[in-house]
Structures are given as structure tokens and as C-alpha cells.
Design a protein around this nucleic acid. Structure first.
Lengths: 144, 144
DNA sequence: ATAAATTACCCACAATTACCCACTATGCGC
DNA sequence: GCGCATAGTGGGTAATTGTGGGTAATTTAT
């Protein structure tokens, strides 16, 4: 389970270090360092999947009629952008330019755990998102 | 059951000592010193869960539709911030910077029992919160 | 085919964190 | 009041994690 929030810097070459706790989860729960990075269709961030979770997603999409407009849009935005990456010896991955642009990631980036997957945000975008999420929850009657 | 209010100091490295009575509860009722620390979405404080209680919360969240806006906001604020910690030999945990910022904790911090969980407050924030909680109760017709 | 650019791989340093030990303060029993 | 036990605090050291950068390999363009 990916949990926790970590801030790491992208270097000049476009590489970012996957936080060690996340690498541990990949190693222990999935026995593979390989991840799939794709656009998140509903937020200006990237979503990172362990191979297994990605396959599960593909299976779900495959179960839907392929002429469905939503499915088509999903394929175009998410699946087309997805690529496999294996981290280098230091645990870093190179984020390609198109994905960097999509999420607007600058130097300071935030990794946010989201259980089966985790997200990569530009630090500023994360802050504003966090503020609005908190505002939304403020007057809610949460039963958990 | 976590009860009572204790004041402890955070040291320069960002570590705070979990009060001994709380450590006892963790040991006796949960048989595990490990805790999960996360943002409290509705108050400027951190909430500390024994592993079991955290799992219970995750189960509740998982039972809700994941496209629910509230659920999403909850994941971003609470789950993404959550981290597991096992106290060091002296019973201390290191609070990461982002959580320290969120709760605005300075040197003097308050631990407040909250039955299944407990809270960590900045001492000043705790005082003001306490005052307004008391004010709220002032003219209530309490049947307990 | 050659040159330029990009990417992968490796090494080294810096910063942070985990772990351990020692000291101080406080409460409790005698 | 004195000593003992427990709780809380401070700090040093070693290991881990994060960051920067060089060089070789690969790809792309000319």
C-alpha cells in the first residue's frame, strides 16, 4: 500500500527519485521495481502503477465495449501515454517531456501515496489541490 | 483506550516522545508499538492510529465509491499524508516536515487521548481549541 | 555514414534519518 | 529525606537516501 507524501527534486536531466518507502512497497508487495507511468485523466498529475495494477486496469478497460466513447477517450489520454520504467541504480526514473508538460512538474515535485498507486505532482499544484480538498472536507460529516 | 492529555517537547531533530501511558495502551491493547500518523482533515492537528484502527479506516474508505468527491479529497488529505512509524528505543517518533507544518507544531506539543486514536497539537493551538470547545458546550443541555 | 542529441549506466558526494548511549528530571516507596 | 525506578531529553555515529554529474551507449537527424 502506497501511503505518505514525499517531496523530491527533479534534476536537470528530468530524473526524479522515487521515495524509498515506495520502492520498498514495489519490492515487497509486487516483487518488481518496474512501474507504469501515465496521465491521470482527472487531475493535473501523473499516476504510477505497479505492473500488476496496470494489468488489472487494462483488463477492466478491455471488458468494456471498445466503441464506447468514454473508453475511447480513456485509451487516448491514459493508455496512449503509458510507458514502463525501471528505476536506475539510485531508484530514479526519467519522466518524458510530454508527461512533464501534462503535470506541469518543475523542480520540486510531490509523491503522494494512493493505496494501489501513487501520484506525482508539481509541488505548487499539490499545495493548491491540498488546500481545496481540505476546504471541501471542512464542514463534512465524515463517518470514518 | 487513549485518555488524558500530556505535554511533551519536540527536540531539534523533530522527534517527540509518545507519552508512556499511550505507549502502554499500544502495547497492551494492540500488542504493537507501530502507529500511523496522518492529518486530521477537520482540525489543525495530527491523528495517530494504531495499525488496527488504521486498517479499519481504510476498509471504510474502500467500501465507498472511489469517484465520490469526498472520498477523493479524503484520500488526498489523509491517506496520502499517512506514514507508519515505529518508535525508537526511547519511545519517540520523528514527525516529518509536511505534517509538522500542517499542525503548526512548535517545541511544546500536546498529546490528547481520543479513545481509539490520539491527537497531536501545538500547545498554543490546543489552548485556543480548548477554549472554544468549552464555549460551545457552555449552554448545551448535556445528557451525559 | 557521420555528427548531434538523448538516454542509460555508473560513481561520488551531501543530506537526512535511524539507531544507540548517556544524562536529567520526576515520582514513588521506604 | 534518600535512593531507586521510570519517563523524558539531548546528542553522536553509522547507515540510508537523495542529488549531481561524467562517460559510454543508443537513438535521431543530416
Amino acid at each position: 500500500m502506497f501511503q505518505g507524501e514525499y517531496t523530491n527534486n527533479m534534476d536537470d536531466k528530468g530524473r526524479i527519485n522515487i521515495p524509498a518507502p515506495f520502492r520498498d512497497v514495489l519490492q515487497k508487495s509486487y516483487a518488481e521495481p518496474i512501474v507504469i507511468i501515465a496521465r491521470d485523466p482527472q487531475n493535473p498529475c501523473l499516476r504510477v502503477y505497479p505492473q500488476q495494477e496496470w494489468k488489472r486496469l487494462l483488463a477492466k478497460v478491455g471488458a468494456r465495449p471498445s466503441n464506447d466513447r468514454i473508453v475511447q477517450a480513456f485509451k487516448r489520454t491514459v493508455i496512449s501515454s503509458a510507458q514502463e520504467y525501471s528505476p536506475d541504480k539510485q531508484g530514479r526514473v526519467l519522466i518524458p517531456q510530454n508527461l512533464r508538460d501534462y503535470a506541469g512538474v518543475g523542480k520540486s515535485t510531490v509523491f503522494a501515496g494512493s493505496l494501489d498507486t501513487f501520484e506525482i505532482w508539481d509541488a505548487n499544484a499539490w499545495d493548491t489541490q491540498l488546500a481545496s480538498s481540505l476546504a471541501l472536507l471542512q464542514n463534512q460529516d465524515l463517518d470514518f
